[in-house]
Write a protein that binds this DNA or RNA. Sequence first.
DNA 1: CGATAAATTGAACTCCGTCAAACCTAGTGG
DNA 2: CCACTAGGTTTGACGGAGTTCAATTTATCG
Lengths: 248, 248
Amino acid sequence: MSLHEVPLSAPKCGDCPIRHRAVCARCEADELAALDAIKYYRSFEAGQTLIWSGDRMDFVASVVTGVATLTQVLEDGRTQAVGLLFPSDFVGRPGRDTAPYNVIATTDLLMCCFRKKPFEELMGRTPHIGQRLLEMTLDELDAAREWMLILGRKTAREKIASLLAIVGRREASLHRRAPQGRIVFDLPLTREAMADYLGLTLETVSRQISALKRDGVIELSGKRHITIPDFDRLMEEAGDDADGGLVG
Amino acid sequence: MSLHEVPLSAPKCGDCPIRHRAVCARCEADELAALDAIKYYRSFEAGQTLIWSGDRMDFVASVVTGVATLTQVLEDGRTQAVGLLFPSDFVGRPGRDTAPYNVIATTDLLMCCFRKKPFEELMGRTPHIGQRLLEMTLDELDAAREWMLILGRKTAREKIASLLAIVGRREASLHRRAPQGRIVFDLPLTREAMADYLGLTLETVSRQISALKRDGVIELSGKRHITIPDFDRLMEEAGDDADGGLVG
DNA sequence: CGATAAATTGAACTCCGTCAAACCTAGTGG
DNA sequence: CCACTAGGTTTGACGGAGTTCAATTTATCG
């Protein structure tokens, strides 16, 4: 663990911004109290690696605020991101004790953690947790399969448009709005992180973003602040039909 | 449903070849009896599409024998396979009623089906089913993420080697053997299906298979019967380290 | 304002896709 | 029994989308 890590005191679950979407979403008051008793918060800075692939994992956690990525790396250094974690997303697998991926904070990050053993025990006598975790895992599986289509069959321009659509959609859903018309958000990823997601080089990412800007599909202020003037137009550029390919 | 579909009488679960690996793996005798009561078998011929994306799905099922693929298709026809289903793998999601993918039999196929409603009810009062389904879904998620690395970062040659390694490993595990040394199996996929998996064209698949044959990494009799003289050599060609990248 | 990482842009190259033709191989029917 | 067919597969030649290597510009934070 890095020196930058800052333990925090734990606010009550009732006030939690991810209460209704996280692994605890279905829990009753008493179940929540049990979780409350074993939870602790940790924060990380943008760029930090929280977990290294192969490390012993003795906790599981939910993202409270910020964004993180899961990445896999080949021996020669080629890197592929395989998961994009937004607030309410879950990290770690009950029953497994070494991490299969690197987990990297791409923005400042606050995590709600549970030591694995107590969490597993609690899960054993709290079906609501397992049920919610199954739901979330099925959603992640759908998202992973959507990525497989993007990685395998889309052009560089479509890949960028797809990523912007996915990020825009998730940012919108954090504010409980449907993504349509004009969307404004901050990209939580560097060009390199985007490249790692899309199976591209950072140069190609940069070129395609410039092209989308030139063509009026997106507007940029600074490098990270993005405006989508017309979300449907972006969806067309992504190669999906207008009603959106992403499930969940 | 096609005319080729053949309903079969249902053997007892006790004799079932996937009894110990499928969604029913953790069930006790009484739970198994409940499943037995609502199950029915269906068989399909190689090449048949069992389920079309967007179709109403009123059943879930386990693969008993044979292999099937899940595919996604863009409007312009570009196709990406997003799942490879071997015996014991599960199709369908409790709580969802339209299919998100095409499901295609790539060999003759026998499925053990459950109408969705009774299955969901049974799942509600049988934690062992939900627990096993969570386990299997987490394994599928790991497999999907392994595919993301293959699709995003591997060369055509590495992709072919990876696919052969994955198929060889699964075939070996059907016979409860660890994959090492000399492996022999039949490819359950056409060149086109392989291309759809790997984000390649069938021409590139063909060329790379010829190259691997030329280099002694694989041997072919006919188009489908494959011999891997040295599994470790194949793993090297796949770009993974020798102990294997695939989780689960 | 100046330093340093991130991003953009350019030019040459390469791996894989595209288009086209030939080649197997397992059935079919004469 | 063998010619014929059709789907699947192999091979070739060429072109292009994206990579690689390199130089420059921009942003951000002391």
